[in-house]
Amino acid sequence: MRPFFSMLKIRFINSMQYRAAAWAGVMTQFFWGFMELLLYLTLSRENPAAFTMTLPQLTSYLWLRQAFFAMFLLWSVDNDILDMIMNGDVAYEVIRPVSLYSLWFARNLGSRTSKVALRCVPILLVSLLLPKPYGLSLPPDVYSAVGFFISMILGVVLLIGMCMWIYIMTFYFITARGIQNIVGTFADFLSGSLIPIPFMPIGVQRVLNILPFASTQSTPYLIYSGYLSGTAALQAIGLQLLWIVLIVGSGILAMRKALLRVTVQGG
């Protein structure tokens, strides 16, 4: 465990250096969330019947999304690693005495948590203090809170599992940057980070609820807000687990194969 812990720590210190960036992140997320909230308030006043979530549910969803924004950006991958893969230096990484998959996994987790650790606190605090229609409300009951906690952890693991697939694909396609952008945008949309999934047309919702993207951030937020509860929440968590097994499992195998290719080629 020790190398992974050190990895997390150095990432953390490293990202602390960018204090301007940290503040910028907080301000941007806050402003962004607030503007969107204003839009939804207008919508709820104009056509309350079409408003599928309750207003407090939606508000909680939006603020959680803003607070944990940096955690769930699929395309925020380590460019050092991408470069390493593209120029072949990755062959030297293989000699490290730990599994490369877990090392990169820890590295990715480290950079994400360090970014979020700083940014989520002020956003959560301020949004909790905001007056009624604007603020973040607490989860309706203990089950939602516990469910959120579990589902959040699963969501992060799943997301990083997907991120690892970006690295793996880089082994095969040399210019990953463009793909990375496209995949990133789609993932943003499919995970309900542009508009919450309950606001999409029913047919689209059905598809998205099955795809792995919704299992990353949408599920935990919907459980927190109480939109998903009881059996529905349990099912959603089950789906998260299923996707983790599939995506992380296949990732580990694919990475082993990809590395084999590099070492054979590179000599």
């Binding site: 104009e46 079409a50 999409m200």
Partner: peptide
């Protein structure tokens, strides 16, 4: 999508 739900 928002317009499909809310119309105006």
């Amino acid at each position: 999508f928002l317009f499909m739900r809310f119309h105006t």
